[in-house]
């Protein structure tokens, strides 16, 4: 066993992780799925959504940012934590204006998929119903802020991968919104449809034009397979 190996326990199962990994990465490698929304494997973690919160030695922490170390005892798939995660997903459904039936992302949307996996049938928290700006100024990509969950994936992708810094945030608190590096909208930015930023949106907020509804209902990513199944498949564990 190399020096870099550390042993941690997730939900009673002892797994070996590599020093420098986050809890989420270590769990993925071991075929154990920790629900997450704002995290993307190709991007640095953001810590925005808190869906990946686990209990580390009894204390809640976001697994996408927390580094592994020898002997950590982690709770992940418990009723209590999953109920909290479900409530976070519900919060996002009532914060934005999510008209699932007419959204291009339907069936491939990670927000929906987390709702399914965590057992949300209906968001019953009070709706905020706030008007959000649509930006269709770019010829190939549009922003529908009704669907934005402020995960920051596009912000990070544009900065770290595309090296364009075309996205950011503005305002704070409940008024926080996705912002673009332009005065009059996305069309003025250097963004292109081939950018990583345009590929990583977990919902239908940042969407490439003219490619929607390509897959028929029933064959979309999450129609039959729950989110996280691809990670759980990695092991023989049933």
């Amino acid at each position: 066993m190399s020096q870099d190996t550390v042993n941690i326990i997730i939900d009673g199962v002892e797994i070996q992780a590599t020093a420098g990994q986050t809890i989420l990465e270590a769990a993925d490698a071991a075929g154990m799925y920790i629900p997450r929304l704002c995290h993307h494997p190709d991007l640095p973690p953001g810590g925005h959504c808190r869906v990946c919160t686990v209990k580390v030695n009894g204390r809640p922490a976001s697994s996408c940012t927390f580094p592994v170390s020898e002997g950590l005892v982690i709770e992940n798939d418990t009723d209590e934590i999953n109920a909290q995660r479900r409530r976070i997903i519900e919060m996002l459904f009532v914060e934005g204006n999510h008209y699932c039936p007419s959204c291009e992302a339907g069936g491939n949307c990670e927000l929906q998929a987390l709702g399914y996996r965590l057992g949300m049938l209906a968001p019953t928290l009070p709706y905020l119903r706030v008007k959000r700006e649509l930006d269709a100024t770019h010829k190939d990509v549009y922003i529908d802020r009704d669907r934005c969950v402020l995960c920051g994936r596009c912000v990070r992708a544009s900065s770290v991968v595309d090296k364009k810094d075309a996205f950011g945030f503005e305002n704070r608190g409940i008024k926080k919104r996705l912002s673009v590096d332009a005065v009059h909208g996305l069309g003025e930015t250097a963004v292109s449809a081939a950018d990583k930023a345009a590929q990583v949106c977990p919902t239908g907020c940042l969407t490439v034009k003219r490619v929607g509804y390509a897959t028929p209902v029933g064959r979309r990513k999450y129609d039959k397979t729950p989110i996280g199944a691809e990670i759980e498949k990695k092991t023989a564990k049933v």
């Binding site: 810590g47 009532v94 928290l125 009070p126």
Partner: peptide
């Protein structure tokens, strides 16, 4: 807290506003 939440994370950004609505009711 609704005014002062930074908005980075969902539970605080949205949760505080939800709480204010629930308490107001």
């Amino acid at each position: 807290f609704v005014e002062e939440s930074c908005g980075w994370c969902v539970p605080c950004r949205v949760g505080t506003t939800i709480l204010s609505k629930q308490l107001a009711k």
